[in-house]
Design a protein around this nucleic acid. Structure first.
Lengths: 251, 251
DNA sequence: CCGACTTTTCGAACGCGTTCCGAAAGTAGC
DNA sequence: GCTACTTTCGGAACGCGTTCGAAAAGTCGG
């Protein structure tokens, strides 16, 4: 029954720093470093757009065979996470508020904005253990949410639960936004709103043609506030360790 | 700035009923009906599993050429939505509570459970205008959420906003769950929890190895309740049409 | 110097979703 | 019975992510 969502880990398949083992290594030496591949990927994206980032094109840009790339990364998702860490690394890190609730909201908004500004985030954001694949330089957003929850009096379990709720809501918004934008860029129909049976779905029929207008608004902040307030209200305000663990969580 | 999320429409590219134009039609007559294709798809899924549902295999199962399928549906996403509607049609429709908040929760849970039980939902749930592609026999879940919101005193804008919040949260949970389950089925590493810098991310470091255990719990219901309560609390309780539209929504 | 051993490189191939375009098979008008 | 016209059919091909296996290029122990 319990779904297995993103757990963190220090360094998984895709580490961040280019490990320096050019000394006394056995086997054929590499002709291309990971840094060179990432640089080629950035060049390719800047020049042709991120949807043109394919394995073969990247290999051509880097001047190597396509299959050689698979000795530097497990699959394309790995490459995207590498690029994401690289992108977040360059991001400036704003100061977070001290007040717990404000810190949660600021951290979540930073997380959301980082993903929203990264058009190809949708392709990896739901990877198993995604959060655990982030560099420590990106984990400050997760830390901000968890620390805010703990600072408000949540137990560890409640804090992780709050983060997961925020994560689900955020990643859902990002993915729907990304796919809508993609289709909208293509020649999509305006999705008018035709004949709904008013006796079966009266409220939807009443909204009718207004739906597209209403659904086009950016309601992420309101939803985030509502979610966080609701979760914080359900959390025990006893700041002592694990007390009251039976309340407010899946018992 | 405003993202364009799922708007409904009565019947888009993928209608539900097999239209009956076998009379006086010009052009070459079809050898295969849409119903036959869907039946072949269900057969294929039941026999080999849904991950084996590919265009070519489906064509072979239906006894037609692969490219012929594209005269019956726009693309594979269309096929999946056809199958989803077909699946939801057979679903029993539980009675919904009268009380607005309870109706919202019941409708959202039904939506969530329907998607969660449909393993390939993740591939289409974020399609642009997804909700609008649903048959009326599936829209009762959306109607339940919107009607609950309106019944609580929300304006149309607030009701649509509430639905979108619930939709984002739900689809995020579904997608993360689906991708986690997929990887976990394969030989995934246990995602332990290595060495985090306690001075940079103290709370994450403190949680440490407990994260997987805490993240494995099913916290969807708590998050849903929190989100709905928060959004209802922010909505104006004036049940008169569009009054108070400036409050609680994107002004 | 020479065979193990290890690692990298990459051409060939697979199955995928999808597009192109010519051939086939009907109806409609004459 | 012909000639349009319209629609369906499906083989060929494209680019995609990914796997396989053989060749290449180093280190190491003797």
């Amino acid at each position: 029954m319990a779904p297995p969502p993103p757990p963190p880990a220090s360094s998984a398949s895709s580490a961040s720093s280019a490990s320096p083992p050019p000394q006394g290594r056995t086997g054929r030496p590499r002709l291309t470093s990971r840094a060179q591949i990432l640089a080629a990927a950035r060049r390719l994206i800047d020049r042709d757009g991120w949807e043109k980032l394919t394995i073969r094109r990247l290999a051509a840009e880097a001047g190597i065979g396509a299959t050689t790339l698979y000795h530097h990364m497990r699959d394309k998702g790995d490459l995207l996470i590498l690029l994401l860490n690289d992108y977040v690394d360059r991001l400036e890190r704003p100061p977070l508020p001290e007040e717990p609730r404000a810190r949660i909201l600021a951290s979540a908004t930073a997380l959301h904005d980082a993903l929203a500004a990264w058009p190809w985030a949708a392709e990896v954001a739901t990877t198993d253990g995604f959060v655990g694949l982030l560099d420590e330089s990106a984990l400050w957003m997760v830390e901000g949410i968890v620390s805010g929850a703990v600072g408000h009096g949540c137990t560890q379990a409640q804090a992780v639960g709050l983060f997961r709720g925020v994560w689900y809501y955020t990643v859902g918004e990002i993915l729907v936004r990304a796919h809508s934008a993609g289709r909208r860029a293509a020649g999509g129909r305006p999705t008018g709103f035709g004949s709904l049976d008013a006796s079966r779905v009266p409220h939807l029929a009443a909204i009718g043609a207004r739906w597209p207008e209403l659904a086009a608004r950016d309601t992420y902040p309101e939803g985030l506030r509502a979610l966080v307030d609701g979760l914080l209200a359900g959390a025990t305000p006893t700041p002592s360790g694990e007390a009251g663990r039976a309340r407010g969580d899946a018992g």
